[in-house]
Amino acid sequence: MTDRLPLFPLSSALFPGLVLPLNVFEERYRALVGDLLALPEEAPRRFAVVAIKNGQDVAPTGQDGRDTGPLAGLGDDPMAALHGYGCIADAAGIAERDGGGYELVATGVIRFRLLSVDATGPYLTAEIEEVPEEVGAGAGALAAEVVRHFGTYQKRLAGARERSLSGQEFPDDPTVLSYLVAAAMIAGTPEKQALLETPDAAGRLAAELRLLRRESSIIDKLPSLPAVELTHQPICAN
């Protein structure tokens, strides 16, 4: 299924099910959110989120909210600046701030493939094709292994807070689990983007298992690490 949606480039990948808080201050993104608010109350307020490959999500002159143009920070070719896969986001809550701008909370819904980008309006819009979810062979067995290794990984990162992680429950659905682990792992954008683009949950879980083993091995060689709140997602400034 193809669609055209407002496009919000970010410095990191968004996964289905992940909650995304946004602090919207640039004029181009204020226009995007304003158009979402203008939709009928019952209409879904959805936009496309894609990670930036070459460029930046905040334009050099955008901190004061001035009009920076839809391509500011991305160069002349948005398809070259952006990754080819992203995630549709549903804006569940939008609050206008005093002095302009918005605070927005959205949730990742479904992956998409980026087909084209239009920069003729006040903000970017994208033609996208939704990517159906596939479980893949062996996902159940891989999920059990990922849960075991992820629990160990969390405890090693948490250090002195190890007891606080005992008894944590994980989703039974391999697809949901794969996205939870992908979002919670400490990894760079290229690695997270690769997980987002993996065709099915089994492949994603297998890749996460390799990453968890690698990261746990690295942690074992370090003398100490500060406590890390894995489920906390920072507010993204556009």
Rank of each mutant, 00 (worst) to 15 (best):
R4D: 01
T61S: 15
E145R: 12
T152Q: 13
A119S: 14
A206L: 00
V105L: 05
I94M: 05
E130N: 08
A143C: 07
I219C: 06
G17H: 06
V50D: 07
L196P: 09
V135N: 01
S178E: 04
Y123I: 07
A95S: 12
A206C: 01
I235M: 14
Q56M: 11
P16E: 04
G108H: 05
S166H: 14
R214S: 09
R97D: 13
S116K: 02
T231L: 11
R4A: 04
L124K: 06
P132W: 03
I110Y: 06
V131K: 07
V105S: 03
I235Y: 09
R210M: 04
L205W: 01
H232L: 15
M1S: 11
I88A: 10
L195H: 03
T107I: 02
V19N: 04
L212K: 02
A48K: 04
G121D: 15
M1R: 12
S216H: 05
K155W: 03
Q233D: 11
G108A: 02
T2M: 14
F25G: 01
V146W: 06
A237G: 14
G73H: 08
P171K: 07
E26C: 04
A13E: 06
A48R: 01
L142T: 09
T189W: 07
L5N: 03
L71G: 00
R46V: 14
L209A: 04
G108M: 08
E41C: 01
P9A: 02
L5P: 09
D3G: 01
P171T: 03
Q233K: 14
A43L: 05
L205N: 03
E130A: 12
A72E: 09
V181Y: 03
D76P: 11
T189N: 13
I52E: 07
E26Q: 10
L114M: 00
M1L: 10
A227G: 12
G55N: 08
G34H: 09
P234T: 04
L22S: 06
S116Y: 00
P6W: 02
S164T: 14
D35F: 08
R148P: 05
L195T: 06
A158S: 09
R46E: 12
L71Y: 00
F8D: 00
V131A: 10
V228H: 14
Q63F: 15
N238D: 15
A106G: 07
E42F: 05
H232W: 11
T61A: 15
A31N: 13
F15E: 01
P6R: 04
A95I: 13
V105D: 01
V50C: 04
F25P: 05
